[in-house]
Structures are given as C-alpha cells and as structure tokens.
Design a protein around this nucleic acid. Structure first.
Lengths: 366, 366
DNA sequence: TTGTACGCGTTATCAG
DNA sequence: CTGATAACGCGTACAA
C-alpha cells in the first residue's frame, strides 16, 4: 500500500508506518487532529463536519441521522478536539474568565470551595477559567504588568482582593473589562457570604439545643480587614437581642494594650474565666474553635456536654480534627457560582454596574 | 468633521460621537484595538507594527529608534493589547498550561503557595494558567468530559491528584498531553517536597537548641493516603539515629481500636503522658501542633520554655495564631515552580518520561 | 443539505 | 527595513 502525500498530511499515516523515501515525513508533522482531517476521512467538507459536530442540523430523515453518527464516530476515533483558540477567533469572544488574586506572600488567600464554585458554572457555560496574580507593586509600571493584562485573553474578571487593594481594583475600570468582586462587601459588583444572618443561624441552632447563655469568641481585633469580623459579631448580638437573651458575652474588638499580646490560647482562657457560665460559643473561625475547645478541656469543662462550640469555616472542621466542634459552613461555593452568573450577565448586557448579592448560609440540620 | 467608514472601522470614532445617518453604526461595533488599528494610525503596515512591538528589529540607526518609540506610544494610547487567541493560532501553541484537581468536595485540596509558585514561572514564560477540575466520575463518559479535555486549550498539565486517583491519571496518557504530578512521590514525572530530609532539618534545629529528647506527633494513621505521613516519621527516626539519640517517642501509625476513636486532643494528652520527659516535638501538621500546645499548657508544661513544638505547614503558623510554634515550612512554592519547568521541558523536547524531583526544605535560620 | 470562501488577529515568509 | 500575503483552525453566510 502506497500512501500519497495528501494522505500523509491528513494524518492517515500511523507513527510506526514505513514511509517511502520519496515522500519524506516532514519534521513538523501534525500531531493534532483538525476538522479537515475528519472531513477528509469522511469524504465531506469541513463545513459539514463542523455543522454536524455543533448540532446545527435538524436531522429530520434517518439517512442524515446515521451519517451524522458516522461522522461523529470518525471524529472520536481520530481523537478530534476542537481548537479553543480558533473558536475564540471565530466567535469573537474568548469564552474565558480570569480569577485574580494579589499573589502577595502570606497575604494572598482564597477558599478552594469558592474557586470550585466558580469553576462549576464556568464549566457549565463551556468556558474556561484562568488564574492570575496581580501584585500591587506591578500595576504602576505597565511594562511589568502580568501577561493577562498585557494581552487580552479573557472576557471578564473575578477579583479576590481585600479592600486594602482598592488602588488595584480601580485599575480594572481603565481596562474596560467587566469584573466582579469575590468575598467583598460593597454596594456594587460584589458577591459575599451573608455573615450577619449566618451568625443568627448559629444562634438559633444553639437555641434549638436549649443553649441560652451564648457567647462569641474572636481571635483578632483588626476590625477593618474584612467585613466578616464585624458582621458576625453584629449578627450574633442582633439575634440574641431578638430572642430576648443577653448578648454581652464577647471580648471587645478593640483590646487594651495588655490584651494585644495574648495569643489565642491565652485569649480563650481569658474569655472562659470572664464568662464562666457560658453554655455555647460561636467562634469567628475554626482556629478559635479548636483553641477554645482545648482550653475548655484544660479548665475541666466538657465539650460538647457542658459547652457547645461552633466555628465558622469554609469546610467541616470535625472531619479533620475529630473534635466535637459544630461547623458553620461559609457558603463560598455558592458565592463563587453567583460571581460567575453576575459576571456573565455583565458580559452579555455590557452593563457595568450591578447591585451586590449577599449569599445566605445553608440551613442547619436541626 | 466627517468620519469615513474606514475610520469608523478603525476605531477612531469615540462612543459619544454623532454618526451620519448614512453611516449607521453597526450593532457589533469593535471594542478592542487591533494591530490594524495601530498600523492605520501610524500609516505603516501591520507587519511593521508587529515586528516593532515584538522587538524583532535591531534598531541600529536613531531614526528607526524614534519611529519605533512613536509607534509604541500609539499602541499604548490606543490601548492595544495583543489577542491571545490569534497568537496561539499563529504560534501553533496555546502557550498555556492547565492545573488539574479532582474537584471532589471535602477531598480536593492544594496549597495556595504551590499554585502561586506554578503561576510565577508560567508568568515568566509569558504563558497562561488554566484551572480545571476532573472528577473521577466524569472520565468514564466522554460526553461528560470537562471543557478542557473535550477541547484542546493547553500545551500541558500539572496534576494535583492523590494516588487514589490513579485511574484518572492513566487517562492522561491517552490524551497525548504532557503532564507532571504535583505533590506526589513516584518514580517519574513527579515533583514533591523532600519530607524525609525536612524532618531531619527539624531535628537538627532542635539539636541546635540543645533539645535532645525529641518526639514525633501525628494525628491520623492512614499511612497510605499520602507519602508525607510515612516520610516525615522515617526522616525523624533516621535523623535521631544518626545523632545517636532515642527515636521511640512517637505513637504507632497503626493504632489499636481504642486509639482510633481518640480525637486530636485526647491523642495529644496520651502522647504527653506516655513521654513525659520529651523536650521537643515535631508535629505532622499545624493542627497537631496547635492541639499539642494547648494540651501541654493544660498539663502545666510551658511552651516553648519546657517544650518546643514544631509543625509542618505550608504557611507560618505563628502568624495566624500567635502561638509559640515553630513552623517547618513545606516548600510548595518551589515545588510548583519546578513542576512548570519540568513540564515545559517535556513540551519542548517531546520527552514523555522524566525522573521525579524532590524539592529540599528551605534552610532554617539557626 | 452541501461545498466554497471569507473573516477573526497575529506571526512568518518572501519579494522589493 | 518594509509591505504584501499566506498560513493557523474554526464558524458561518452565501450560493448551488
């Protein structure tokens, strides 16, 4: 069997197949299957294959159906996978969005659940998700700008930056790129967990367990780093007042100089000695919950019998530590999903100013 | 001033500019600046602009230099950003890699530092980084495959999957896509932290502090989930023996049924009561370190004066908790960097089998 | 329904 | 050094 040059270019030559010396294999032999390869194999035009693979036919009569199936089979057999770049060119859109973080060491953070939620909707849309860092130091000099901002590669951005990076965020407006803020609470273009009612939910769970002397425990005191620091406390206080219960069992957010040097364990002991009658504690995060549980144990308080400990966290705490801590799971997954939905509608409608969305916490199993 | 149709298409019409009724603005007016726009503005050809912007000229004589500068200025003024998709088409490569995780809830995990290290090298290469989930349930049915695998969009993959996902990993070979395994210890195509010598490094730090009765504390016992579980213990034992010290101060990895029901705090107390003379403990992770510190405190042992606690972690523990715990920082950043380097060389050389690389821990400040 | 031919934006080649 | 022009792979309008 003699292969023609044309056949060879169409990828019909298997890697191990001997080739005539008169038809030397070019060094840059094609590795990927294209639409043309499938078309040649099926003896139809590229247009036909494209339309079939994209379901643009009505496929009314059976002969069309079977032939479509045959071509699809060929495409699979040849391992055809559409080239995303070519699609982007043709479609006029990248069908991709970028997730932007600051990338600064020891500062950068995002919940994996959140990224997963973002991904789930992006995937459903048939789009792609790029991840990107934009250190605050680099936005001043345009020569230093990261690839994503020097080139155009996405249709929109989901931005994971604390309010302290407002200068960076302001920069996006000049880019003319639609963007949504992740886990930030502001008037517009934000999606964030509704920590205020999340705390209320925790209170009502404790109430359902006949726990009435409830406290709130928070490690740190920098109130303006993230809105959740104040919202969780406020939500706790509000829910307690609504239930006609005392809401004073918490340490001040602005500590005295003495307090400032306490580590979490010392602070936990301080808390438990100051409110010895407390029956349930809502903790800002799992770290506080673990330390409080440990300290309670060292003071002879049994958890969860005498003291119920709850902690906000992006994952179930118990699974890792085996400790009897009730997790108040932050709905980051849904936050991520909503971010993409909002961003997508901004991209479609060219609308650049949308009201923010607070994502409710998932209901507890009471 | 009358704008011609040509001018309009070249983007010289500002959004607010009135347009003649004989030249109706098309609905899908161009928003992005292209090479042609810059070329028209500078009255040169697109080729010239492309070459200047890509630095393909030697720029020997001054007139060339100044004109290049002028064109660069125009490009900036017009907000020109090269279209990545077009570049990919032309270059024949996507200049992008994908980071793959399983995406399974409560199982999926990766260190943000690692992703950051990956990004840093990708950025230096001028490439892009896509993130992608491949749930094990979806690889069976090709119709369910995620976008990244249905289409071709990257030149290689960095895979973050535990050994338990070996079926998924096997699938990549069929894809003909180069891939590297992140944080997995196998013979080939892996990059992982050298936990064995990491533990030794921790031992030598304690020795430098005149701590000689050293123990190792680990929460969990599932030895085959991740290589670090056995390697850290083995590294500890080996280093102790090399220093002629006792290496028996640790709890068995395979616990009895009684032990199995202990949470971390109970296990920590068990450990400290069993080895009451221990002066320093190396913990598998920060969680153990926190719980051990709390338990020590409850038993009247002062940390770090009487007992030095160290813990492996991807970030400095002290920064978050304020606790006196010495972090053994896992070099995930460097692991990520090395992954990209290895992957890139695989892409360049078409070589599909490279020996694995163990990344050393960073030296301690003694 | 089918094939052809063009456009998408960029880079590379090849004459001037 | 410069300007035309041909790829790159895909979608699609248009003509058959």
């Amino acid at each position: 069997m003699i292969m023609s040059v044309a056949d060879s270019k169409l990828g019909l030559v298997s890697p191990n197949m001997p080739v005539s010396i008169h038809n030397p294999e070019p060094a840059d032999r094609k590795e990927t299957t294209t639409l043309a390869d499938v078309a040649a194999r099926a003896r139809v035009s590229v247009g036909t294959v494209s339309r079939i693979l994209n379901g643009k036919y009505k496929e009314k009569w059976p002969s069309m159906v079977s032939r479509s199936a045959k071509i699809r089979r060929i495409a699979i057999k040849l391992g055809y996978r559409p080239n995303t770049a070519a699609r982007s060119m043709s479609h006029g859109r990248f069908q991709a969005i970028g997730f932007v973080t600051c990338g600064d060491y020891e500062i950068d953070w995002y919940p994996i659940n959140g990224l997963s939620g973002i991904y789930s909707v992006v995937e459903d849309m048939g789009w792609r998700l790029l991840i990107n860092e934009l250190p605050s130091a680099k936005i001043k000099d345009s020569a230093l700008l990261p690839q994503l901002f020097r080139e155009s590669a996405v249709d929109g951005l989901i931005v994971n930056l604390l309010p302290m990076f407002s200068r960076t965020i302001a920069y996006f407006k000049k880019l003319r790129l639609p963007y949504v803020l992740f886990n930030v609470k502001q008037k517009q273009q934000c999606v964030y967990p509704d920590d205020f009612s999340g705390a209320a939910l925790a209170v009502s769970w404790l109430l359902s367990r006949d726990v009435r002397r409830i406290g709130y425990f928070c490690r740190s005191c920098a109130a303006d780093i993230h809105y959740s620091m104040s919202d969780r406390l406020a939500g706790f206080q509000n829910a307690m007042k609504a239930a006609n219960l005392e809401s004073h069992r918490y340490l001040e957010l602005s500590p005295s100089d003495d307090d400032r040097h306490m580590d979490v364990l010392q602070r936990a002991e301080f808390f438990l000695r100051r409110f010895p009658d407390v029956q349930g504690v809502i903790c800002y995060e799992s770290e506080e919950a673990v330390c409080l549980t440990a300290t309670a144990k060292s003071l002879g308080i049994r958890v969860p019998n005498q003291l119920k400990v709850m902690g906000f966290n992006e994952r179930v705490i118990r699974g890792n530590t085996g400790l009897p801590i009730e997790t108040i799971e932050i709905p980051f997954y849904e936050v991520g999903q909503q971010c993409v939905k909002m961003l997508h509608s901004m991209i479609e409608s060219q609308d650049s100013e949308l009201p923010s969305v607070a994502i409710p916490y998932r209901p507890f199993r009471f």
